[in-house]
Amino acid sequence: MSDEEKENLKANELTEQQEAMEPKQAPPPIDAEREAKLKAAAEARAARAAAKAKAEAEAAQAELDTPKEPSPRQNDLERYVRLIEDTVGQGTVKESGLNELNADMPMLVIASEQWPEVSLLLRDHGELRFSYLRNVSGIDYETYLEIVYFLLSLDNKQDVAIKLRTDREAPSVPSATPTWSTANWNEREIYDLLGISFTGHPDLRRIMMPDDWVGHPLRKDYEPLDSEV
């Protein structure tokens, strides 16, 4: 190949390269159009965001302005608290409220010493008749332990959640098994997995874990005795 030929080839390559590059450099009119489009899109986005923020703010303001409809369960809650406090004694109900996340289910925190008396009242009182215990849950809140009894009145079609609180070091609450037989195995399960002892329980043994198990697995700080296994 002569030098001249080489030069020609090089020139060809260059033009080819140039040709290849050319489409990448968009011609000015298209560029302007694109920019205008981008700008319009950005403006539209900003407008939408502003409108959304405004609508949200208005909704929040409207929520604040209109007084909240009192829940139909509010009366029930007040009645339960009054009945318990009048019969068992002032200070029995430590906290009370409606659970908004749960169709406004009334929730009462009961002083655990009064629990046996309160449980009988809830079951037998003519206005309450919470004869059906649907569920018992135990929760470790790290600073204290909580037991929740979910009760149901089949006659009145009403439900209520009763909470007992106990400290983590020597957790103990009175058992509800004498009042509702349902509580028996549920409390055994809580004893097994959270280590809460229920005084007055007829048969408090482990139920899920083996009898020689060490520790209570549902505690937040639980560490298996032998983590390798």
Partner: peptide, 28 residues
């Protein structure tokens, strides 16, 4: 917060009690 829902399974009332601390995992 927390919630307890229940439905009728073929065997009876099956319930689910969730305690949430606002995380992607349930607290209990």
């Amino acid at each position: 917060g927390e919630t307890y829902v229940r439905i009728e399974s073929p065997r009876g009332e099956i319930g689910c009690h969730i305690v949430s601390k606002g995380k992607a995992e349930p607290y209990r």
